[in-house]
Design a protein around this nucleic acid. Structure first.
Length: 244
DNA sequence: ATTATCAACGCACGCGTAGA
DNA sequence: TCTACGCGTGCGTTGATAAT
C-alpha cells in the first residue's frame, strides 16, 4: 500500500486527491507537508481540513467525517470515484449553490440522505423520478425534469389562493400523513372517516365538491403509492407494522 | 423573442359495482 | 334496487425545451 497520492488544486477552489492502490492512506498530511507546503494552497480551509482529519483513513469514519465537515460548511459533499485499483476524491471548498446552503442552514436537522440528494441537485446530476418526487414532496426542490432546482424559502405570500397553490405539495403530504396516522391508530377506516378527518381542514378556496374530490384523490394517491389497500369499503395500511 | 411541442400533475367525470 | 364509492381516464394548466 502507500501508493503515490497526487493532489491537484483547481482554480475554482476544488481539490482532487487520487491514489493508485486500495485506498487513500491515512497520512495525507505527509503528502501535503512534503510535496506541497500548506501556504502554497490558496484555499486554506481545505488544506487545514486535510491536515486535521486523518483524512479518509477508512470508509467507515473518514468518508463520513468528510461528509459532515462539508455539510456543516454548506459546501458541496465530497465526490468519491472508486475505480479499479484507483481512488479519487473531489472536494469543493466553496459554496456552490446558495440555495443549497440556505436550505441546510434553514433545516439543520435534515437527514444526511436528503442532503446527499440535494447535493446531487446542485451538481446537476440526474435523479431518479422517485428521488425527485420525494424531494418535491418535502418541498425541497422545484422545477421539472431534468431541471430541478433547490427551492428558496417560501416566506411571504400575497393571496390566499396563491398561498394554497404554493403549499399544495406540502399540504397533500400532510393530509396523507393524517390518513396514515388514523389507520395506524384504528387499523381500519371507512371513507366517511376520512371525510370527517380531512374535510374541514381543507382550505376555504376549495368548495365542497372540490374538497370531496380532494379527499378522494388523496386516498387514491395513497393507494397508488401502495401505502394503503382496501377490501370492499374498508381501508387499511398495506404493510401492517409489526411493532405496536 | 415568439410560438409550438412535450411532460408532469392534479382535478373531476363517468362507469361499474359493492354494500345497504 | 338504489346509492355511494373506487378507479380508470380525460382534460386543463403549468413549466421546460425545441423550433421558428
Amino acid at each position: 500500500m502507500g501508493g503515490k497520492v497526487t493532489l491537484v488544486e483547481f482554480e475554482d477552489g476544488r481539490l482532487c486527491f487520487s491514489n493508485h492502490g486500495s485506498f487513500i492512506p491515512g497520512s495525507i498530511e505527509t503528502v501535503i507537508c512534503n510535496d506541497a507546503p500548506e501556504s502554497r494552497y490558496r484555499n486554506r480551509f481545505l488544506a487545514e481540513a486535510m491536515v486535521n482529519l486523518n483524512m479518509i483513513d477508512t470508509i467507515g469514519s473518514g468518508i463520513k467525517k468528510m461528509f459532515m465537515i462539508q455539510k456543516n460548511r454548506f459546501f458541496p459533499l465530497p465526490e468519491y470515484t472508486l475505480g479499479n485499483a484507483r481512488v479519487e476524491v473531489n472536494i469543493t471548498g466553496k459554496v456552490l449553490d446558495i440555495a443549497y446552503a440556505r436550505k441546510l442552514a434553514e433545516f439543520p436537522d435534515l437527514k444526511l440522505e436528503d442532503i446527499i440528494l440535494l447535493d446531487q441537485i446542485q451538481k446537476r446530476k440526474p435523479l431518479s423520478d422517485d428521488q425527485a418526487k420525494y424531494l418535491k414532496s418535502k418541498n425541497l426542490i422545484e422545477g421539472r425534469k431534468p431541471n430541478y432546482f433547490i427551492s428558496a424559502q417560501l416566506a411571504q405570500h400575497s393571496d390566499n389562493k396563491a398561498e394554497y397553490i404554493r403549499h399544495k405539495a406540502f399540504d397533500d403530504q400532510h393530509y396523507k400523513q393524517l390518513i396514515i396516522e388514523y389507520l395506524e391508530k384504528f387499523t381500519t377506516a371507512q371513507r366517511s372517516d376520512f371525510d370527517r378527518l380531512i374535510l374541514d381542514k381543507l382550505p376555504e378556496v376549495l368548495d365542497e365538491q372540490q374538497k370531496h374530490h380532494k379527499v378522494k384523490n388523496l386516498i387514491q394517491s395513497l393507494k397508488n403509492q401502495g401505502l394503503i389497500t382496501n377490501s370492499g369499503r374498508t381501508w387499511q395500511l398495506s404493510k401492517p407494522s409489526l411493532s405496536s
